[in-house]
């Protein structure tokens, strides 16, 4: 039945379904964050809207939509309006190639691209434009400082992140995301690539600009960083982009290091594989929130020093060792 549909329609349906799922997931990641943070701080979090606060995201969405959309008079109107869309666009585009489970006819994804992991990195590297252009276009000093920081931080940590992942690519000898997962059917890459995994986790937190690397919007110094001037739905778009990026890097960590949909009895059962995948992603998301509830923000110079002087050399070392081992033994 599915084969009878034209390709473009199939892709459109897949994309629409995935879009709805991702946006819903975003909303509930946000709620989960508020809840978990509250519990860690001996509070109870949102609990008035719906049972256990489960309708809070809907209330928030309504609030976002009906708030006034302000544009500062010093802003560059075109780019100011464009930036949130770049942020969300690049955040969502990564889901075009992320596979979620292995079916009979191939992986469950919108497109199974051979250079899948490269595609994800290419797209997420574009995400920094949303932030940097937003900060510049606001025509205000705090956003500009926030965006300059964001740019420096994201391009610094992107290097170490890519380096840490190249080890996985070498070991799997493929850049296809489903291929990498298949290569982990016996042993998850978290074991041989434990250093790479550690570096990936740290850089992923930095790439998504979250605590303890949320220098971009450091409230105590920069008001709200790059989105200080944004309000209403445009601010909401940045919010969506941040959380979707968080889900993306969690998906990627699952695919690259935790064996994706591999798990006991998952072979030949796509739904079970999907369940494993989702559980692993949720574990990562929880870890993110947990970090936010625990660690204070790094000082900016320490952040940069840590990225360039610790993570990058470690990632290079990891890559070198992996390359030698792969060249000799495989």
């Amino acid at each position: 039945m599915i084969d009878a549909l034209p390709l473009w329609l199939l892709v459109a349906i897949k994309s629409l379904v995935l879009l709805i799922i991702v946006i819903t997931l975003f909303a509930y990641t946000m709620l989960a964050e508020r809840k978990v943070l509250a519990y860690m701080q001996l509070r109870v979090g949102p609990n008035k809207v719906g049972p256990w606060g489960l309708l809070q995201p809907a209330a928030d969405a309504v609030k976002m939509i009906f708030k006034e959309d302000l544009t500062p008079s010093t802003a560059d109107p075109l780019i100011y309006r464009l930036a949130p869309f770049i942020a969300v666009f690049t955040a969502l585009l990564a889901y075009a190639v992320i596979p979620f489970s292995q079916g009979e006819h191939g992986p469950w994804s919108i497109a199974n691209v051979n250079a899948g992991i490269l595609f994800v990195f290419a797209i997420t590297s574009m995400g920094v434009y949303g932030i940097s252009l937003a900060g510049w276009a606001s025509g205000s000093k705090y956003p500009l400082l926030g965006s300059v920081r964001a740019t420096a931080q994201m391009i610094s940590y992107e290097l170490a992140m890519t380096m840490s992942v190249i080890g996985v690519i070498l070991q799997a000898s493929t850049t296809s995301l489903s291929g990498i997962v298949e290569a982990q059917s016996r042993l998850w890459f978290i074991v041989p690539q434990c250093l790479g995994f550690l570096i990936y986790i740290i850089t992923a937190v930095a790439e998504t600009n979250r605590v303890p690397f949320d220098l971009v919007e450091a409230e105590s110094e920069l008001v709200a960083g790059f989105h200080t001037e944004y309000s209403g739905l445009r601010f909401g778009l940045f919010f969506i982009a941040e959380y979707i990026n968080m889900i993306t890097v969690s998906c990627l960590a699952t695919l690259l290091f935790l064996g994706g949909w591999n798990g006991p009895g998952a072979a030949g059962h796509p739904l079970l594989g999907l369940l494993y995948f989702v559980i692993k992603v949720f574990a990562f998301l929880f870890f993110y929130i947990w970090l936010r509830g625990t660690l204070p923000r790094l000082r900016y110079d320490r952040l940069m020093a840590f990225g360039w002087k610790v993570l990058l050399p470690l990632a290079t070392l990891n890559l070198l060792v992996t390359a030698i081992v792969v060249a000799l033994w495989y």
């Binding site: 001996l42 509070r43 109870v44 625990t294």
Partner: peptide
Amino acid sequence: IFKGLATTFGYMFRRKAT
């Protein structure tokens, strides 16, 4: 860092002040 993580995790199951 791990000590801090353990502390926050433990606090999740404490009685809430709210």
